[in-house]
C-alpha cells in the first residue's frame, strides 16, 4: 500500500514536472523569438500566449512580494462597462436634446418673421 501511494505521488510529481518543462519551453520560445523566431503555425500562438501569461505571472509575483513587505499595491478597478455605456448614452441624449432645442429656436425665429 505504502509503495502504491509513493508510486502515485511519484507519477503525479512527474506529470507536473513534464508539464512545467513544456510550459517553460513554450514561454522561452514565445519570449525569445517573438513571432518571427517561432516556427509559425498553430503552436506558435500557444507559445505567444504562454509568454504573455508568464509576464502576467511575474507581475503578480512582484505585487504579492510588495504586499508581503507591507507596501501599498494599487489594484486597477475598471469601471463597470455597462454603467459607463449608460453614462455615454445619457450624455449623447443630452447632446441630441441640445440640438433639438436649437432647431426649435430656429423654427420659432422663422415663424416670428
Amino acid at each position: 500500500m505504502t509503495d502504491d501511494v509513493m508510486r502515485f505521488f511519484a507519477a503525479w510529481m512527474l506529470t507536473h514536472e513534464v508539464a512545467d518543462e513544456g510550459l517553460k519551453a513554450a514561454v522561452l520560445r514565445g519570449d525569445e523569438g517573438g513571432a518571427e523566431g517561432m516556427s509559425g503555425g498553430a503552436d506558435a500562438f500557444v507559445d505567444g500566449l504562454a509568454a504573455m501569461v508568464a509576464e502576467e505571472k511575474e507581475k503578480l509575483k512582484r505585487d504579492l512580494e510588495a504586499r508581503a513587505r507591507g507596501e501599498e499595491v494599487a489594484i486597477e478597478q475598471p469601471r463597470d462597462p455597462a454603467l459607463e455605456e449608460v453614462r455615454f448614452e445619457v450624455a449623447e441624449l443630452r447632446g441630441r436634446l441640445d440640438n433639438i432645442e436649437s432647431l426649435l429656436e430656429t423654427l420659432l425665429r422663422k415663424l416670428d418673421r
Binding site: A35, M38, G40, A42, F45
Partner: peptide, 11 residues
C-alpha cells in the same frame, strides 16, 4: 490578424 502574427496559413 493572429494568423498573420503567428504565420498560420490554416488559421
Amino acid at each position: 490578424m493572429a494568423a498573420l502574427v503567428y504565420r498560420d496559413a490554416d488559421r
